[in-house]
């Protein structure tokens, strides 16, 4: 018996037709391979990255012939010897590493209270303000932001003009190590907060109330309950900040004014100023290796944090 018309409304028919069309165009057996097919773009991207690295590895073993400006066709370790022994490169590497440690430490110390306040505040207005304040710098590029600091901290900048109002002579605030550190902290803060906030959100407020009722004041609650439980976020945030600082280019270039170069700046100079592709490649490879070792040590010491893939912990 034919079912009554109301039992089979028109929009069911339309969907049935659509389903049949889909079935012919994309048979079900294709669907099984779909998740794998979706990986293709990622695999391509990674492949290109690896191809680039291999190419760099190759040129890092060739030296530049200063007469012909061509790369040698024999392999040598000369570039690595220079990169590892020359004082200039050593001091740049030390500067970059120490800066990345300092920046990470300061950023985490500032980011934790910020993230905590953002997650725990009862006031929706304050939370919104903190979020907007956090995201706003993202809309402004790194270079523009560094330029902003030039305007504020320069010799004729806002700060010095303000000091001048009180008859104070202008202070040199730019083109030194602290200016670079300052700029980096300001640049890294949103990254750290965004990595830490989810870890704090995952801590039930009841745990803090419990610690409180068991005799812990807020400082000890923070130390014994909040920080240990937020560790995955702290490790992840710390790693992101450290690796981004270590490899940063624009801020040391602009706020350091050439006197505070990081490894990226030196690599840039090799490629685009002296055109020594070999030495540049060697420095790049060394930076990749050093960075990887650093990340590996942190994974070993503190666990993989929230960067871990499920099941990899413990």
């Amino acid at each position: 018996m034919k079912p009554p018309r109301s039992a089979y409304p028109w929009h069911w028919r339309v969907l049935d037709v659509l389903e049949r069309v889909v079935e012919t165009a994309w048979p079900r057996r294709f669907t099984k391979g779909l998740p794998h097919a979706m990986l293709v773009p990622v695999v391509l991207l990674v492949a290109i990255l690896i191809a680039g690295l291999v190419e760099m590895l190759d040129s890092s073993f060739r030296v530049l012939d200063t007469n012909t400006f061509l790369m040698s066709d024999f392999y040598t370790l000369d570039n690595y010897r220079r990169a590892l022994t020359e004082n200039f490169f050593q001091s740049v590497a030390t500067r970059s590493f120490i800066a990345s440690f300092i920046v990470t430490a300061i950023t985490l110390v500032v980011a934790v209270p910020y993230a905590y306040l953002m997650v725990r505040t009862q006031s929706p207005a304050l939370r919104k303000f903190l979020l907007v304040a956090l995201f706003f710098p993202f809309f402004i590029g790194e270079v523009v932001r560094a330029y902003g600091w030039l305007i504020i901290l320069g010799n004729q900048g806002l700060v010095n003009e303000f000091l001048g109002l009180f008859g104070l002579s202008s202070v040199r605030l730019l083109y030194n190590y602290s200016a670079v550190i300052f700029g980096l902290v300001q640049y890294m803060l949103p990254f750290a907060v965004l990595m830490i906030a989810p870890a704090l959100t995952a801590i039930p407020e009841e745990l803090e109330a419990a610690a409180n009722s068991l005799g812990a004041n807020w400082i000890r609650t923070f130390r014994h309950v909040v920080l240990p439980l937020a560790r995955p976020g702290l490790v992840a945030g710390g790693l992101v900040v450290m690796t981004l600082s270590l490899t940063n280019f624009a801020i040391p270039a602009m706020l350091g004014g050439g006197s505070q170069d990081f490894m990226s700046n030196v690599i840039y100079d090799q490629f685009f100023r002296t055109s020594d592709q070999g030495l540049g490649s060697a420095l790049s490879i060394l930076l990749v290796i050093a960075g990887s070792i650093l990340v590996g040590i942190i994974f070993r010491l503190f666990g993989t944090g929230s960067l871990a893939i499920k099941g990899a912990r413990k």
Binding site: P204, E206, A209, A210, A211, N212, S213, G215, A216, V225
Partner: peptide
């Protein structure tokens, strides 16, 4: 304040420290 009162509390979701 709560941390100076000698009160033991068992919470709804227990609130054990994981």
């Amino acid at each position: 304040p709560a941390h100076r009162r000698a009160i033991g509390m068992v919470f709804q979701r227990l609130a054990l420290f994981p």
